[in-house]
């Protein structure tokens, strides 16, 4: 009975409120990334096996100058799973001029202790030997890598000064269509240089470089 009421209330709320959809998509070699397959890159290929990231503190600025900030805004995006790449943000139904969000988990949240949902440390996005959330994770292999079995793994995070790796992304929106955020990995892998860097798995200067490089991979696909 209780469940039925909850369902009814939920249904009523959902039918009245509006939610803005944001889709995240990884792109490599100008095509949507296909996991566990060799994608041509720089005369060789890259095979991405895992790609997850935290999107937090989602904010919209509307054409009329007002703005919206999502509460408890923490989303774990698993790029390998289309269902986990869509966010539905309940805001006012107004035309969005600008979208902004953070890649990773902010320092204040890191200091709040154990959490559930997308912030559950069991989601594989939390370090165990050193505490803190992993802001994004990308793993795979490529003949370009000099490492054993040609593997690469970047687990990028860190929330304490001066290695606070969280990145703030601001994207302008021009058309009235749904929002698709593309993460273009070509430029990312080019800057990372897989022949020189294959493993960064702890906070520090290297992680900061990878995080700042990653920031430039985001763009809004309009229309």
């Amino acid at each position: 009975m209780f469940r039925y009421i909850i369902f009814l209330v939920g249904f009523c709320i959902s039918s009245f409120s509006y939610s803005q959809k944001i889709t995240f998509r990884a792109v490599l070699n100008n095509k949507p990334l296909i996991f566990n397959s060799n994608t041509p890159f720089d005369g060789s290929y890259i095979n991405v096996e895992l790609f997850k990231l935290y999107v937090s503190n989602v904010e919209f600025t509307y054409k009329d100058g007002s703005s919206f900030k999502e509460r408890n805004s923490y989303h774990l995006i698993d790029l390998a799973n289309p269902k986990d790449c869509e966010l539905f943000i309940s805001d006012a139904k107004k035309e969005i001029k600008q979208l902004s969000f953070d890649i990773g988990i902010d320092s204040a949240t890191n200091y709040q202790g154990a959490k559930s949902g997308d912030l559950d440390p069991l989601k594989g996005m939390y370090w165990t030997w050193q505490s803190g959330y992993i802001n994004f994770k990308i793993e795979g292999n490529s003949p370009l890598c000099s490492s054993s079995k040609s593997k690469f793994a970047f687990h990028i995070g860190g929330f304490q000064h001066p290695f606070n790796a969280i990145q703030h992304i601001v994207l302008d929106k021009n058309s009235a269509s749904d929002i698709t955020v593309e993460i273009k990995l070509d430029g990312f892998f080019k800057s990372v240089q897989l022949d020189q860097r294959t493993n960064v798995m702890s906070p520090g200067r290297k992680a900061m470089f990878i995080a700042e490089t990653f920031k430039n991979a985001f763009l809004l696909k309009d229309g």
């Binding site: 890191n110 200091y111 202790g113 069991l122 939390y126 165990t128 030997w129 050193q130 505490s131």
Partner: peptide
């Protein structure tokens, strides 16, 4: 290495020469 008391147990649980377990399996 650990900045919050809540998160401290993750370290010994997952350390291969301490408890050599995963919290997921403990649960």
């Amino acid at each position: 290495a650990v900045h919050h008391l809540d998160m401290q147990p993750l370290s010994p649980i997952h350390n291969s020469i301490e408890m050599n377990e995963t919290l997921a399996h403990v649960i």
